[in-house]
Write a protein that binds this DNA or RNA. Structure first.
Lengths: 217, 217
DNA sequence: CAGGATCCAGACGTGGATCCGT
DNA sequence: ACGGATCCACGTCTGGATCCTG
């Protein structure tokens, strides 16, 4: 059962009110989808459940989840104390497409986000996990400055051919980690010496230390 | 039931002998695959049946059907008089990748081909269609000269931006036709004036007049 | 009947993320 | 607890070709 996509921010916020406090069992029953035993073989299940409830089409590449509103949806697993349990995936890294920050996928994905924190302590069964209050958020100048610096430094390392040395240790809010089916997946890359090589596809992620600020406000 | 891939040309020719004269009903029974009522919703079925019988893996992109032998497999529907009923698809057209003929996908697909003609008169039910004698063929210099000229002229028209005017009328042996799910599928293209536009994805095909020469020898 | 349009299966890529060893 | 590794769904692309109308 798919809902209609909200046409205005007010409609979206109404839908968010109807989401806060509800359990995943509750939501999946209303939407008539079956609930998996755990997330090991369904890692994206919660995110897709929330997408369905809020009425995003779940397809559409390169467009925000709510295209007419320009808003991106991100779920965040948190513990009882509103502390994120995981980093948050932002988008794939496009090596060799050097643009300005404002043209980047990262900026455009994070400019305007609906964060949906979900109480997800590991001892809490999937069905009993509950939605906290969704947060409609816009990137502020200070945050942008930090993200921009992170992005520029990380992209520069990639451009210069240091992709293999680019570990998840770099970056204040944003960092780069593998993003692939497994480590056998490889894509073309040109290293610092100008030689053709292969690296595992990578993605941008927000560190939990960053999203913690959002969830605790 | 998948067979092993032939490791030598001799093994491949043995397999071909076992194929000649047999009906599609016979083959599909041996391979334990169900036979469709007609080809309208299974246009590639015959080709895939023959692939299975001859032991090609059916995956592998950019590689020949028999990678270790460097041989490509092509089925050709023919009538009682060995005249092809259709043109033969070769490969997709890669606009904006101008290389030399010998580096082209067309040359490499057609250098060494196992043609499998199949009696396919329209009044003959799918199950009753029979395999004629497979033909293991290598491109000869005269054929290459004609194919090369066709390919160079067609590619030049594409490079120069005349993709929209490039109809299937051009080319002696080889021509270009749409190759997509339907005519709504579009891909980026730069026209003769240098403007960005969209065209339907295209493929190279061999005219029936060309394959007729092969089937009648 | 030639040329433009179309159809399926299966591989591949991307967006949704969490898992889990050190 | 962090960073490298991994997992599913689903849309898109590609290779297998034939359909079908003017």
């Amino acid at each position: 059962m798919q809902k209609f996509m909200p046409q205005t921010i007010d409609e979206l916020q109404e839908r968010c009110k109807a989401l806060a406090g509800r359990s995943l069992a509750d939501l999946s029953q209303e939407l008539n989808v079956s609930i998996p035993e755990n997330l090991l073989h369904a890692k994206g299940w919660v995110g897709q459940l929330i997408e369905t409830f809020l009425g995003c089409s779940a397809n559409s590449k390169a467009l925000p989840d709510f295209p007419n509103l320009g808003i991106e949806l991100k779920t965040i697993p948190i513990n009882r104390n509103y502390k994120p349990l995981e980093s948050t995936y932002v988008c794939t890294v496009q090596a060799n497409t050097c643009t300005h920050w404002r043209d980047s996928w990262v900026y455009n994905k994070l400019r305007h986000v609906l964060w949906v924190p979900i109480f997800s302590d590991p001892d809490l069964a999937l069905k009993d996990r509950k939605i906290a209050s969704p947060i409609l958020w816009q990137m502020d100048p200070e945050t942008e400055a930090t993200l921009r610096t992170d992005w520029e430094e990380l992209m520069e390392m990639l451009q210069l051919g240091f992709g293999k040395k680019l570990s998840a240790k770099f970056g204040t809010y944003l960092h780069i980690r593998p993003k692939a089916a497994n480590s056998d997946v490889l894509q073309d890359y040109i290293d610092e010496a100008g030689n053709k090589t292969k690296i595992v596809p990578k993605g941008f992620y927000l560190r939990a230390a960053f999203t913690e600020q959002l969830c605790k406000t």
